[in-house]
Amino acid sequence: MREPRSPRASLDPPGDVVRFRGVRKTYDGRRLVVDDLDLAIRRGEFLTLLGPSGSGKTSTLMMLAGFEPVSSGSIELDGRAIDHLPPARRGIGMVFQNYALFPHMSVGENIAFPLDVRKLARSEIAARVGRMLDLMKLEGLADRRPAQLSGGQQQRVALARALVFEPKLVLLDEPLGALDKQLREHLQYEIKHIHRRLGVTMVYVTHDQSEALTMSDRIAVFAEGRIQQLAAPQTLYHEPATDFVAGFIGENNRLRARVVEAARGGLVAALETGEGRIRAVTAGIATVGEPVSLWVRPEAVVLDPAPGTVDNELVGRLCETTFTGDHVRLRVETGGSDAFVLKLHGRRTEASLEAGRPIRIGFCAGDCRAIASST
Rank of each mutant, 00 (worst) to 15 (best):
T321L: 05
E350Y: 13
G151L: 08
G346P: 07
E313D: 00
L176R: 08
E350K: 00
S72W: 04
G247S: 04
T324A: 12
R197Q: 14
G51M: 08
L179C: 12
I359S: 01
L133G: 13
L32W: 13
S53D: 03
P358A: 11
E185W: 00
H104L: 05
R43G: 11
E299L: 04
E275G: 15
L230N: 03
A160F: 05
G152F: 00
R331H: 02
T214C: 02
E251F: 03
F113E: 01
A158D: 11
H84F: 05
Y27M: 10
A339F: 01
L187M: 13
L50I: 09
M202T: 13
R128I: 08
S6I: 08
L85F: 09
G108Y: 03
R279F: 01
C364Q: 11
V95S: 12
V203A: 09
P358Q: 06
A370Q: 06
N252H: 04
L314S: 07
R196D: 07
E76D: 13
R80E: 15
N312S: 06
K119N: 14
C319S: 03
G356H: 00
H327C: 03
E261P: 09
L213D: 10
K137W: 07
V310L: 07
D28L: 11
V34F: 12
L61W: 13
L50S: 08
E76C: 03
L318K: 05
G366I: 02
R279Q: 13
A142S: 14
R145P: 09
D16M: 05
T375F: 12
G316E: 11
I249R: 02
R31Q: 09
L236A: 13
L101W: 05
F96W: 12
L163A: 05
R145Q: 15
D338C: 01
S352P: 06
L303F: 02
V18A: 13
R31V: 15
I227H: 08
R277M: 06
G54M: 10
R279G: 14
F248V: 06
F222Q: 11
R80N: 11
E275A: 15
L230K: 04
S337P: 03
G56E: 01
R254N: 03
R369F: 10
F340V: 02
R80A: 15
P307S: 11
Q148T: 07
T206W: 03
E109Y: 03
L64K: 00
M132N: 02
I194F: 03
K343E: 13
V310E: 09
H104Y: 14
V200M: 10
R369T: 12
L61T: 08
D83S: 03
F20E: 00
G56R: 01
V315D: 14
Q182R: 07
Q234I: 02
L47M: 08
L37I: 10
E261A: 15
R19K: 11
K192Q: 12
T282V: 15
E261W: 10
T273R: 00
V205I: 14
S374H: 10
S71K: 05
R42N: 05
V157F: 13
A88D: 12
F340M: 03
E3C: 04
F222S: 07
S150P: 13
G108T: 08
K119D: 10
A339E: 04
A142Q: 15
S55H: 01
H193K: 10
R118H: 09
A280N: 05
A81M: 01
M215R: 00
R144S: 09
E224G: 04
S293I: 06
E272R: 08
G325T: 06
F323Y: 14
L294Q: 01
E251C: 04
F222E: 14
F67Q: 00
L149S: 11
